[in-house]
Design a protein around this nucleic acid. Structure first.
Lengths: 130, 130
DNA sequence: CAACAGCTTCCCGCCGCTGGAAGGTCAAGC
DNA sequence: GCTTGACCTTCCAGCGGCGGGAAGCTGTTG
């Protein structure tokens, strides 16, 4: 299949597929006589794997690492577990940061009406917080 | 004061200050005879404002928008309120996405031991989820 | 007067794409 | 046969928000 069909099946932009190939994340596929890239069902699976791992928060280089391990015949799961643990900790940190930020935004929103006018500052809403 | 002192006072990298000037977010300061940038206390305030707004989730272009409005003598608060509302909605969306992701990661982690070995897939941990 | 910190400009790289330009290919319709 | 249009190719450049490093000043200290 050609790049557009592959991209459609997985729900990505053809540009993204070429990009993945460019950075060595996906192997270079066969080419048709026309020069068009020719993909197989295996490529669909590989690309799907990439997107799933990405959705789980892995970076492209981490995913690349996994695919490489796999190609060398090693089981990547230990590595994946470590990465996922790091993801989890990271996620918790980000979520609590966001919760604090959210509260700050809500307070700010609530305070909007009660704030005095002060033409001397950039924006009293932002500056006159406590 | 020179760029290093300004940067120290606000807690940013001097590079960042020059970058802000480069994209037009901060005005170009006076120069000393040596060519060094010469900042005032006003610049400290402006930079602090930028960082605070940024911490609240505003993009540099949104902050730029606010500073521009302010320079034209308009009160930017309406705009700021709209931006903050968008931020808040965005934040809620991201937090719930993260909560779902977190659950997925936890499930995945828990499932790690119970999964069968399957040398045919990239990583059974990632692929054999439901 | 030499060393060293700090400043200047410049350009490049990070991540994960996305857009656009300039051109080739292929199937359908007139 | 010829055009249109969708798709493909390569290459280059940019987004945001910086940070690193080179090559060269300036300015203070020992």
């Amino acid at each position: 299949m050609r790049i557009g069909e592959l991209a459609d099946q997985v729900g990505v932009n053809p540009k993204t597929v070429r990009y993945y190939e460019g950075i060595g994340l996906l192997p270079a596929p066969e080419r048709l006589a026309s020069g068009y890239r020719d993909y197989t069902d295996d490529d669909v699976e590989r690309l799907r794997f990439v997107r799933t791992a990405q959705r789980l928060g892995l970076s492209l280089s981490e995913i690349s690492e996994i695919l490489t391990l796999r190609e060398r015949g090693e089981r990547p799961c230990e590595y994946v577990l470590a990465v996922l643990d790091r993801q989890l900790a990271d996620l918790d940190r980000r979520v609590s940061e966001m919760a604090a930020l959210r509260q700050e935004l809500v307070d700010l929103r609530d305070a909007a009406d009660r704030l005095p006018s002060d033409p001397g500052c950039y924006c009293s809403l932002i500056e006159h917080r406590r």
